[in-house]
C-alpha cells in the first residue's frame, strides 16, 4: 500500500509539472515534432483527432502501440494516450509500453457503461474528464491523478468546457462555505467519498491538477479557460485542423503563459490563418461528454 501511495503522489506531481502548459493531440511523429517545437508540454498520441473520430463515426478504440511508440521516439516531452472508459486491458497495454499518462477518455467509444477503470491498480498515471465536482471526486477516488473538463471534443466550441469549469468553481465555493458538520450530507449530494469532500472543503481546491479540455481553438479560448481557473490546457483538433498548425500552437502556448495580458493576447491572435471550422453544440447529435458519469 505504501508503495502504491508513493506512486500516486509522484503521478500527481507529474501533473503539477505540466501546469501552465499546453498538451496537444497528435497523430504522427511529424505532428508530435511540430507540437514539441511549438512549446507543447506534452503530447496526446492518437490515431485520429476528435474532429475526425466524430466525422468517421463507428467505434473508436485505443491507438496502435506501434504508432504511439513512434511518437515516444520522436519527442522528449511526456507522451499521453487514450484508453476507452472502462477498458482496463487497453490501459494495461498502454502501461506496458510505458506511456507517461493515460487519458480514460469519452472521446473513444466507452467499453463499459457502468464502471470506470480501477486506476489504483496501475503504476502509470491517469487523467479523466469531469463535468462537475462530484464526477471529478469519483474519478480521483478511482485513482485519477489529474482532472480535465469534458468540453465537447472535436467541435471547436468552447461552451461546454466553460460550463464545466464554472460549475466546478461554483461547487467548490459552495462546499467550502458549508459547515463541517454538513459534509456528510454534501458527500451524499455529490455522490462522492467523504474524505475527498473534506479535502476540498478544507483546501478550497481539488486534490489534483485540473486542466481545460474540449473545444479550445484559439489563443483567446485558452486564455479564457486559464482566467476561469484552469491550470493548463489540452488542445485537440484545434491545432492540426487549422490553417497554420505550428503558428497557432505556438500562439496558444504563449497565451497560456500570459493569459491575463490582453495586449499580448491581441498580438498572438493576429494573422493565425483559418481556425478549425467548428460545429456548434446544438448542431451535433453525439454528446461525448455524456459518456461516463
Amino acid at each position: 500500500m505504501a508503495e502504491i501511495n508513493e506512486r500516486y503522489e509522484l503521478n500527481k506531481e507529474l501533473a503539477q509539472m505540466l501546469k501552465g502548459g499546453v498538451i496537444m493531440d497528435v497523430t504522427t511523429p511529424e505532428q508530435a515534432k511540430i507540437a514539441e517545437e511549438s512549446g507543447a508540454c506534452a503530447v496526446m498520441a492518437l490515431e485520429r483527432i476528435p474532429a475526425d473520430i466524430r466525422a468517421a463515426g463507428g467505434v473508436a478504440r485505443t491507438s496502435d502501440p506501434k504508432m504511439i511508440k513512434s511518437i515516444q521516439k520522436a519527442v522528449s516531452i511526456p507522451v499521453m494516450a487514450k484508453a476507452r472508459i472502462g477498458h482496463f486491458v487497453e490501459a494495461q497495454i498502454l502501461e506496458a509500453i510505458e506511456i507517461d499518462y493515460i487519458d480514460e477518455s469519452e472521446v473513444l467509444s466507452p467499453a463499459d457503461d457502468v464502471y470506470h477503470i480501477d486506476k489504483t491498480k496501475f503504476k502509470v498515471p491517469f487523467v479523466c474528464g469531469a463535468k462537475d465536482l462530484g464526477e471529478a471526486l469519483r474519478r480521483i477516488n478511482e485513482g485519477a491523478s489529474m482532472i480535465r473538463t469534458k468540453g465537447e471534443p472535436g467541435t471547436g466550441d468552447i461552451v461546454q468546457a466553460v460550463r464545466h469549469m464554472r460549475k466546478m468553481n461554483r461547487q467548490i465555493a459552495e462546499l467550502s462555505a458549508r459547515e463541517e458538520s454538513e459534509l456528510f450530507q454534501a458527500a451524499k449530494e455529490l455522490e462522492a467519498p467523504y474524505e475527498l469532500v473534506k479535502y476540498v472543503h478544507e483546501h478550497k481546491k481539488l486534490p489534483v491538477v485540473n486542466f481545460a479540455a474540449g473545444g479550445v481553438a484559439t489563443p483567446a479560448d485558452a486564455a479564457l479557460m486559464m482566467q476561469l481557473g484552469a491550470e493548463g490546457v489540452f488542445v485537440g483538433s484545434g491545432i492540426f485542423k487549422s490553417g497554420n498548425p505550428a503558428k497557432r500552437a505556438a500562439a496558444i502556448v504563449k497565451a497560456v503563459t500570459n493569459y491575463k495580458d490582453a495586449k499580448i493576447l491581441a498580438e498572438l491572435s493576429e494573422d493565425l490563418g483559418d481556425a478549425m471550422v467548428g460545429i456548434n453544440e446544438s448542431e451535433i447529435e453525439l454528446l461525448m461528454a455524456e459518456r461516463g458519469k
Binding site: 503539477q16 509539472m17 505540466l18 501546469k19 501552465g20 502548459g21 514539441e36 517545437e37 512549446g39 507543447a40 508540454c41 506534452a42 522528449s76 516531452i77 511526456p78 505556438a250 502556448v253 504563449k254 503563459t257
Partner: peptide, 15 residues
Amino acid sequence: PGGESTVMGKLLREL
C-alpha cells in the same frame, strides 16, 4: 522551477 525545459527554454527566448 520544474516543468518542461523545452517549453521554458523556448518561451525564455521568444519573450
